[in-house]
Amino acid sequence: MRTSPTGRQLRFGSELRKLRERAGLTATQAGRLLGVQQNQISNMEAGRVGVSPARLRALAVHYGCTDQGLVAALCDMTADRTRGWWEEYREILPTPLLDLAEVEHHAQHLRTAVTVHVPGLFQTAEHAREVFRQDVPALSPPEVEHRVSFRIKRQAVLHRDRPAPQRAVIHEAALRMQFGGPKVTRQQLEHLLALSELPHVSIHVIPFAAGSFAGSGQSIYYSHGPVPQLDTINLDQSHGPVFLDTEPQLAKYRVLLSRMETIALDREDSRNFIHTIALSL
């Protein structure tokens, strides 16, 4: 039995629980249908024990789930037993950071919208280092370097074979925040320009002139799963990532992102905008 399920394992269990509750069954009733004890169902839904694809399909039948796309996606989740590179940080960094890397690794499409910070996947090491130096309570120099190395390793998703599309909306305020001073900021902006040349990376700027807009007070990170029900939202908070995945939450943040994307500049105008700011430093 797992003592510390990963975020992906917890999410899988949560989806099992949602299926059971939609069927109007208690854990005891579900156990009887499957021929196991109630605690076995509870452990499955808590991510503490693995579930074979065959048992998952049996549960789906008992729960009356006819969404074959969702069932197939859940089967893929439970069949994947590989350990990701982020596990080497298991005793070093907070668990939510590892869960974030796991979500990114499996995402089909990533969308983000930020107002003050450059998205983590797009940060240079120097920029990230300065961001982490501002943490409260203060991180020790080794803790800062662990976070920087982890953030840079996360960026491998941008350069692997068949990378997931990335669409980022960045407010002008984030481009003008001089983390580390003008030199580091200029290097960061040049890095953004280089990334924007990648065919799967789309960067869009919201200038100050756009005025107010919905979602302006948040940093939103939306990971698309293989089916919409398995999408994940990450809100970047001062105490660490917060993950949301209920249907109303997913619907709300899809709308917010779409509205922000609508008022942002197109790719070419955004590149020119970033280039102009970099030249001014």
Results as ranks from 00 to 15, higher is better:
residue 239 H to W: 04
residue 216 S to R: 14
residue 212 S to Q: 10
residue 13 G to R: 11
residue 103 V to Q: 11
residue 10 L to N: 13
residue 43 N to K: 15
residue 183 K to C: 07
residue 271 R to H: 03
residue 262 T to E: 14
residue 221 Y to T: 15
residue 169 V to F: 04
residue 149 S to A: 14
residue 68 Q to H: 13
residue 249 Q to T: 10
residue 220 I to Y: 05
residue 111 R to Y: 03
residue 247 E to S: 12
residue 112 T to D: 04
residue 236 D to E: 15
residue 178 Q to D: 13
residue 116 V to P: 02
residue 118 V to N: 06
residue 104 E to I: 08
residue 197 E to Y: 01
residue 125 A to V: 00
residue 216 S to N: 11
residue 213 F to I: 10
residue 51 V to Y: 00
residue 194 A to S: 07
residue 46 A to K: 13
residue 61 V to H: 12
residue 35 G to W: 03
residue 44 M to V: 01
residue 219 S to H: 12
residue 272 N to L: 12
residue 81 R to G: 02
residue 68 Q to A: 10
residue 280 S to G: 09
residue 39 N to K: 10
residue 147 R to D: 01
residue 239 H to Q: 08
residue 161 D to G: 11
residue 120 G to E: 11
residue 103 V to K: 06
residue 89 Y to A: 03
residue 193 L to H: 11
residue 27 A to E: 07
residue 210 A to R: 10
residue 155 Q to E: 06
residue 42 S to I: 11
residue 126 E to I: 00
residue 93 L to N: 05
residue 200 H to M: 07
residue 89 Y to H: 08
residue 103 V to L: 08
residue 75 C to S: 14
residue 181 G to S: 01
residue 272 N to P: 00
residue 272 N to T: 14
residue 100 L to Q: 07
residue 85 W to I: 04
residue 14 S to D: 00
residue 166 Q to L: 15
residue 164 A to I: 03
residue 214 A to D: 15
residue 274 I to M: 10
residue 105 H to T: 13
residue 56 L to H: 05
residue 219 S to C: 09
residue 126 E to R: 08
residue 74 L to H: 09
residue 177 M to L: 06
residue 163 P to A: 06
residue 120 G to V: 06
residue 100 L to W: 13
residue 275 H to S: 15
residue 63 Y to V: 05
residue 136 V to A: 10
residue 226 P to M: 09
residue 195 L to Y: 10
residue 93 L to Q: 02
residue 126 E to A: 14
residue 35 G to A: 02
residue 51 V to S: 01
residue 93 L to K: 00
residue 151 R to Q: 12
residue 217 G to K: 03
residue 200 H to Y: 09
residue 158 L to M: 11
residue 9 Q to K: 12
residue 13 G to F: 05
residue 58 A to E: 15
residue 88 E to M: 07
residue 134 Q to L: 07
residue 92 I to M: 04
residue 84 G to S: 05
residue 248 P to K: 11
residue 24 G to S: 02
residue 149 S to R: 14
residue 72 A to P: 06
residue 279 L to W: 10
residue 54 A to Y: 01
residue 145 E to Y: 02
residue 179 F to Y: 15
residue 106 H to Q: 14
residue 273 F to D: 09
residue 132 F to Q: 00
residue 214 A to R: 14
residue 143 E to G: 12
residue 265 L to Y: 05
residue 114 V to I: 10
residue 97 L to S: 06
residue 38 Q to T: 01
residue 280 S to P: 06
residue 206 I to S: 05
residue 146 H to S: 12
residue 113 A to G: 15
residue 158 L to N: 04
residue 78 T to K: 00
residue 131 V to Y: 08
residue 189 L to K: 09
residue 71 V to M: 09
residue 70 L to E: 11
residue 51 V to Q: 04
residue 203 I to A: 01
residue 272 N to F: 05
residue 158 L to R: 09
residue 248 P to H: 11
residue 63 Y to L: 02
residue 145 E to F: 01
residue 170 I to M: 09
residue 75 C to I: 00
residue 116 V to K: 14
residue 179 F to C: 08
residue 152 I to F: 04
residue 46 A to D: 04
residue 62 H to Q: 14
residue 132 F to P: 02
residue 22 R to D: 04
residue 39 N to L: 01
residue 159 H to V: 12
residue 278 A to I: 13
residue 183 K to S: 14
residue 101 A to L: 02
residue 179 F to W: 15
